[in-house]
Design a protein around this nucleic acid. Sequence first.
DNA 1: AATGGTCGCAACCGCAGCAGC
DNA 2: GGCTGCTGCGGTTGCGACCAT
Length: 324
Amino acid sequence: MGRIPCCEKDNVKRGQWTPEEDHKLSSYIAQHGTRNWRLIPKHAGLHRCGKSCRLRWTNYLRPDLKHGQFSEAEEQIIVTLHSVLGNRWSVIAAQLPGRTDNDVKNHWNTKLRKKLSGMGIDPVTHKPFSHLISEIATTLSPPQAPHLAEAALGCFKDEMLHLLTKKRIGFQFHQQFVNMASTPNNAPSTSHVKHEDNSYKDDTIEKIKYGLSRAIKESDKNWVTSGGATSSHFHDNGGFNNYNFANLLNDEEGSPWNQSLCSGSTCTAGGELQHQQQNKKSSNENCEDSGKEIVVTRNGSSTMFNSDCVLWDISSDDLMNTMV
DNA sequence: AATGGTCGCAACCGCAGCAGC
DNA sequence: GGCTGCTGCGGTTGCGACCAT
């Protein structure tokens, strides 16, 4: 027996609100306040669900709401807070007077996320794709590959689809990449890759293709050697004698994959904060390992990433300008 | 002008947390 | 402690507007 519905669905109107309905709801709330949303539509003479009334009021009718476009300052706040909080839209919206969580969420999904992706920034981790893919290619050894594949696919699926469909590049698992995948630390640079179409010498795409090819190849290898274990088995099975991936995730030293393993849109604030702290530390440690400079600093409101000679500055007027 | 695709906003859905009983 | 109802939240969907062909 499930819980009872919040209203009689058959007797309520749905869809767009009319000006008359808006007026009835606003008038009623102006007189009686917003106590007990279940009773409000009945008393206000509306054939609407109480929940629908509440949403209409909080997202649209409230007199303190802004309805215009988001300013650059607001966008900057959203990006900065999202890098720390993840999809905690209500918390982010609370920092933007006159904006609702729905506004912020919609703006993020329709504008900011694409904007970041277009700039080569992973909107989940707020790191440059090149940085993440480099880690795929250079940091991890085969035992982590199944998780690596999951992380890579989870993080880059949308961006890949966007890039691949918009740019019409032919995505294939080139034998060339597969061969490279068997020899770590030699991720392809654009100069090493012969393109089927020279007009698409996009380094990010090449790195994505390389990273996924390698991850999937290694994943297949593990699949075979482990007798077809699912990724969940890898957390505790004997195939991890030399490396316990669960330990990697919980390791005090942190892991560059912690953020990536946040499943897309469900990162928690605490987790993100922890990730950030861990990544600050692990980034520098990775530098020592890989010889690359990867610095994450926070300077006032700005966040800058320096990876492979690329500086990203989200405090600039144009979000996520490439500075170098 | 017609058609199909994309975008952006508003609204809905389901779940979780909380309070009252 | 368990049940019920309300509210808040984040993810998803519907649909009109706009654009390209």
